[in-house]
Design a protein around this nucleic acid. Sequence first.
DNA 1: CACCATAAATCGAACGTTCATTCTAATTTA
DNA 2: TAAATTAGAATGAACGTTCGATTTATGGTG
Lengths: 204, 204
Amino acid sequence: MFEKYNKVQRAVLETTLNIIIRKELQATSMALIAKESGVSTGNIYHYFQSKEDIVNELYKAIVTFNGEYVREGLLQGRTIREKFELGWNRVVELGEKYPQGFQFIEQYSFSPYIYDEVKQAVYTDGWCGPMDKLYEEAIQQKLFIPMNPKLMVQMHYGTLVYILKAHLQGIFELTSDSVHEVIRSCWKAVQLADDTVQLNGTIG
Amino acid sequence: MFEKYNKVQRAVLETTLNIIIRKELQATSMALIAKESGVSTGNIYHYFQSKEDIVNELYKAIVTFNGEYVREGLLQGRTIREKFELGWNRVVELGEKYPQGFQFIEQYSFSPYIYDEVKQAVYTDGWCGPMDKLYEEAIQQKLFIPMNPKLMVQMHYGTLVYILKAHLQGIFELTSDSVHEVIRSCWKAVQLADDTVQLNGTIG
DNA sequence: CACCATAAATCGAACGTTCATTCTAATTTA
DNA sequence: TAAATTAGAATGAACGTTCGATTTATGGTG
C-alpha cells in the first residue's frame, strides 16, 4: 500500500491509519504515533511537515492504491459487461482486504481536514474517471438507460459501499455469490428495457 | 429538529452541529461552542456532562428525527410500491432539507466517538426496522427476488446516500424527476423477473 | 404588593493536562 | 570527518473541565 515510501514514512503512515480507525482522528496524537510506530516525534517531523501533512499524505496514498487496483480490474475485462463486473468486484475486494483504508477514505472524504486538492485525486489518480467512461460507452451502445453516467457510477458505488459497511459491522455475511448477485442487480437497475425482453421472450 | 430540548440545550446542539460540519470534530472546542452559541462554558456543563455527551446527544436526536420523518412517509403509502417510493423519497428529502444532519450521521456513524448504544438507535428509533419489514413483505409477495432484505435495504440506502453526497458536493444537480428515476431503478434492481415480462409482453 | 430567603441558572476566570511542534545534542552513515 | 539521521526533553499554546461568584427566578410571609 505504501510502496513508494521509505521505511520510516511507511511505519508512520501505517501506524497513523491504524490509530485513526481504532481511536478517531481526535485521539490520534503525535506522541501516540511516535510510540506505536517506534519513530521519535523529532524524526517524524524530519519526514513530514505536520500532522495534517501525514493525514493528507495517507489519504492520497490510499486513493492512488485503490485507483490502480480497480483500474487493473477494468482493463482485464473484454466486453463492457465483463469490465463492469471485474471493476466493481475489485471495489468490493478492496473493502474486504484493506478494510482500514476503505473505512478511512469513507470517513474522511467529506472532512475539511483533507485539502481540496488532495480530494481531487479521486478523479485524477482514482478509478472514477475510467468508470465514468465505461458507463458512457454503455449508454452509447444502448446497454444502459440514458442517464447521467456520473450519477449512475455514484449510485453503484454507494450500493457497494453500504453492503461493505454493513458487512464490516457484522450485520450480515458476504459471500462471493451474494456479492456477484448485488453487482448483477446493479446492472439490472440501469439496463435498457429492450435488453430484458430480448432475454425473456418476444413482445406479444 | 431539537423540539424536546430547552432553549440552552438547543442552542448548544445546533451550534455544535454547525461547527462540526464546518470545521471537523477535532476543531470543535468547547470555547468555540460557547462563543458561537452564546452560552458560557460553565453553563454548558450545567446541561451536558461532557463534550462527548453533547456529540452523542446530537447523534441520537438526529437519528430519531430522521426516523420519524421517514416512517411517516412509509405510513402514507397504501401499496408496497407506494410505501417504497414515499419512504425513499423522504430519505432524499432529509438530505436536501437538513444537509448538516445528514452529513453528520454519514460522517460519524462509523466513528468510535459515538457510543455503541447510541448507534443502536438507528434500529430502535430510526427507520431501518420498518424498511426491513417492507422488504420482507415484498419478497413474500414475490415482488422482489429472494435476497437478504437487510442487504437490499443497505444497497438502496447506499445508492441514495451517494447521489446525495455527490449532489451536495456540486458534482451534479438533483431534480425531483432524476430522484424519482433513481428510486425506480432501485426497485428494478431487485424486482422478480416475472414482473418485467408481464409488463412487456408474453413469453414466446 | 413589597420583602426577603432560597434555589436555580449563568458566568468566565482559573486549573491541570495534553497537544503539536521545535530545538539541541547524540548517533549513525557515507 | 562531514553530512544525514535520530532522539527525546523543552516550550508555549490550546484544550476540556471545574469552581466560586453573580445574576435571575421562585415562592412564602407580613
